[in-house]
Amino acid sequence: MTRAGLLFVGVLSLAGCPVESDIDPMMRQEKMKPYWPNDFYSDNRAMRIPPANAVPRERTLAALTPPPVTAALVERGRERFDIHCAVCHGFAGDGDSVVASKMSLRAPPSLHSDKLRGYTVAQLFEVMTQGYGYMPKYDSEVSVADRWAIANYAKALQLSQRASLDDVPADKRGDLDKPVQPAGEKGEQHGGEHHGGTSQHSENKE
């Protein structure tokens, strides 16, 4: 057989091969990486499940006490709220979201009811940690530090939704009558939330 013929047969036989059996022997190695299957364990997972009652290292007593409220903490809370909470509770925390509209048993409540406005930061933290009613717990998805941040942002959100003119610093009141700048793009409502965040921050400091 000519050299070209051999090559042709070689290429043909390769064409049927999945990438897994690559010609490079280092391509696929006998080791474990996250989420890989592994025959060594009976459940075929390379990643192991912690033993029952194991406590994550991040869950120290210091981590479980409410951290001091800073602008950075509330800002982090906003980011995490928008990822993990807004899906159901809505970006404004009013329970208005696409997902919520499809919930048949019980739609997530608005955070702006009198009952929930009475919740302390620690109570909100506990709801996220243990779940409440139909709301599942979020302790494995959201870290302890982020749960504190979200709880503080939720309080800011509550303030923002019932803010009155008196809550706006006297020297900023003139800005409220100005039309929204087109460059802002996010619209009036989002800007309002932001003011809520900052006013809450200053309140807690005082």
């Binding site: 989420y35 919930m103 019980r106 599942p136």
Partner: peptide, 17 residues
């Protein structure tokens, strides 16, 4: 790893939906 969601994450919503 970006992480594949645990089945419990699916069930956060799909317990109801």
């Amino acid at each position: 790893s970006a992480g594949y969601p645990a089945t419990s994450v699916c069930m956060n919503c799909h317990a109801q939906i």
